[in-house]
């Protein structure tokens, strides 16, 4: 076999890629061992984060990460699906490429730039909203707290903006795998556009859920923009207006300040858990999306085309 040396060399480079993923897991575990040993699972159920006293409980960060990501998802998922449907099913063909390009730009803008915009444009706007908020409404826990501007709402909005392009791009690809026969079948039964698209969405439901999960994975690990607008206060609060903290943000903020080893290991453990969570979420979403792709990729079709040919 003359090809064997080639295969081995190219494969060796590939193995570097695969080993990197393993190495991240191993290294993060190694660097957080002190904290894992000392606190165990307790680390994730206590909410006292006091580096000076050597007390490390990561509950506020888990809470903040999940809260901000779910909030972002609630805002972003409908918008992203709307974009995916509009671009792949509804809009005229000439508009497709520019719209895809514009949503790609949304993904291309660096996190730090969103953060900068967040600090100087979004946060003041949210502060104005909070000040305007009538007193009775502020009694609701969801809207309580002083009008700081920075906080959960700002983080959720900025995260939503950042994950829309990911979810819409994947959802668009997923919709393109739906066979034309699905839509034609619906139209043949006298379906309206909405009903035909609903049929297509139902057909592609696992992939659509996968695309939303992929956005969720992005939101969980997003760092800079969130750090800059969430207020960085380790507390468990239900309020949209309360300054809170996320796992990624606490690592970014406190890592270089970690004075003793236990503190550093506690921060790395947060990174390790973030790594594991995003790994699981991403793997799950890939499986959902790939599963759909395998079950028969057929000729791409669009509702607009079906209608054009029917006309």
């Amino acid at each position: 076999m003359r090809d064997l040396p080639f295969r081995i060399i190219v494969g060796a480079f590939g193995c570097v890629l695969a080993l990197l993923v393993l190495a991240i897991g191993v290294e993060l575990t190694r660097q957080s061992w002190l904290s894992i040993q000392k606190f165990g699972f307790h680390f994730w159920t206590t909410d006292t984060w006091d580096p000076v006293a050597g007390q490390f409980g990561a509950l506020p960060f888990i809470w903040g990460t999940l809260y901000s990501s779910l909030l972002a998802l609630a805002i972003a998922a409908p918008v992203a699906l709307g974009i995916a449907i509009f671009v792949s099913e509804l809009c005229p063909a000439w508009l497709q490429t520019p719209l895809v390009f514009l949503t790609e730009l949304l993904a291309a803008i660096p996190s730090i730039v969103y953060g900068l915009w967040g600090i100087f444009v979004l946060v003041p706007a949210i502060r104005a909203l909070e000040i305007w908020m009538p007193e009775p409404l502020r009694a609701i826990p969801l809207l309580s707290g002083p009008p700081l501007g920075v906080g959960m709402l700002a983080a959720g909005v900025i995260l939503a903006v950042m994950i829309v392009p990911f979810t819409s791009a994947v959802a668009r690809e997923v919709l393109q795998t739906v066979p034309a026969a699905q839509r034609e079948g619906a139209y043949a039964l006298g379906a309206t556009r909405f009903e035909a698209i609903r049929a297509a969405l139902f057909y592609a439901r696992t992939g659509i859920i996968g695309s939303i999960m992929l956005g969720f994975g992005r939101a969980l690990g997003e760092t800079m923009a969130v750090t800059m607008v969430i207020g960085n206060n380790p507390q468990v609060s239900a309020s949209l207006f309360a300054p809170q903290y996320t796992m990624a943000a606490v690592v970014a903020n406190e890592f270089t300040e970690a004075s003793d080893e236990l503190y550093l290991h506690a921060l790395v453990e947060i990174g390790l858990v973030l790594f594991v969570i995003t790994l699981v979420v991403n793997a799950g979403s890939r499986l959902l999306i790939w599963g759909l792709g395998r079950s028969g990729r057929t000729r791409p079709s669009r509702v607009a085309d079906v209608e054009a040919s029917a006309a």
Binding site: L17, L20, V21, I24, L28, Q31, S111, L214, G217, R218, L220, G221, E222, T223, A248, V251, A252, F255, L267, V268, G271, L274, F275, T278, L279, V281, N282, A283
Partner: peptide, 12 residues
């Protein structure tokens, strides 16, 4: 998977 690992984790 690597593409989905948060950048802050890569930093750590």
């Amino acid at each position: 998977t690597l593409n989905g690992v948060p950048s802050i984790v890569i930093g750590v």
